[in-house]
Design a protein around this nucleic acid. Sequence first.
DNA 1: AAATTGTAGCGAATAAAAGGCGAACTGAGA
DNA 2: TCTCAGTTCGCCTTTTATTCGCTACAATTT
Lengths: 201, 201
Amino acid sequence: MAITRRQKEVLDFLSGFTQRKGYSPSYEEIAAGLGLNSLATVHKHITNLHNKGMLQRSHNRSRSIDVVSQRAPKKFTDRLPLMGRIAAGKPVEAIETAESISLSEIIGSREVFALEVHGDSMRDEHIVNGDYVLVERTSSAREGEIVVALVDGADATLKRFYKEGAVVRLQPSNSEMAPIYAPAERVMIQGKVLGMLRKYA
Amino acid sequence: MAITRRQKEVLDFLSGFTQRKGYSPSYEEIAAGLGLNSLATVHKHITNLHNKGMLQRSHNRSRSIDVVSQRAPKKFTDRLPLMGRIAAGKPVEAIETAESISLSEIIGSREVFALEVHGDSMRDEHIVNGDYVLVERTSSAREGEIVVALVDGADATLKRFYKEGAVVRLQPSNSEMAPIYAPAERVMIQGKVLGMLRKYA
DNA sequence: AAATTGTAGCGAATAAAAGGCGAACTGAGA
DNA sequence: TCTCAGTTCGCCTTTTATTCGCTACAATTT
């Protein structure tokens, strides 16, 4: 982002030319189109725009400029178009993009932070090593919610929360692990899980 | 963290100008727009607004102002502080929040859309019914990547992609399901999975 | 009431990008 | 190999941002 006036003119010329002619302009054509007398100036503009990620090009290749995102009033940094369900029986292009999804949908107006999950104690919950859980900072939880909890100020752990009279049961979602039972006053809830984010390499 | 009346006027001018022209104003243009006679005053406003987190800018860079959240009473829409790893042995408050995570980290500058996962064909991959996969629109994939693929223009499915000579193997991540083998020309790749998002009720 | 702090404003001096030039060099394709 | 579009270089001008010292006012704190 952060384009200057002149750079926008260059960009507009590039996309206009490519649109009309079907191929990108040579540096000489760009110079002519912008009223410049030196190809070095054109080159500098192209380099600057490339550094800002506004276009692609190949080294020493003729007419290899490819404007990348010029006319995209919608920035898909946060909100993603929801194209439908997988296995819907149609190519995804065919599906109208009426809906969308975003992090703010999960977060709302709550105070949320992320934690990287370490270990496999939530494997049965399909939360695995390296995933990020999105946690609302709160000190209370309801029956069955996944919480970040401390027992006696020791390790913070990710467990399902159940209240059984005066004691609290913290249930790992891994059948090989045993639940933790503790009196409510020794259990400190730090937050509850609203969502999960995974990043593939 | 409240904005003053004058600061709001500055902010409104900035986003209006950027919206109309496609690039951000210079300090001189801002001064003219607000009836100021000194660029120092403009600079002070910009600095104050930057300190309040209302805009981004680059040092000494022309027209690099980027209004960040103008109409968003919500706290964190995109970027979340990463508080550390779960089971780190400390209360999460104690951990410094040097890092952060966001959707844009996964997306980058690619064209990405979301698909709601239906069914359990990716269960072994810990992607389950109701999850959202974040898909980059692309027509090629590399060995082992999770792709959205169509065979003979039929149902779009989520599978791992393997190339075995002239044929393609589409491997479901569910041990109960059989892989699909098909000649490469009958397989159309619609995108590859960059990440996954889950929302708890 | 006095001192402090933060916002708002001015003009001038300084420094750094951005924009521009011509000339010489380089590499991909014919 | 020859050509020409693209690249690199040194140098210049213009535009733009930054910093400094100063005044004034309003809201808080002491």
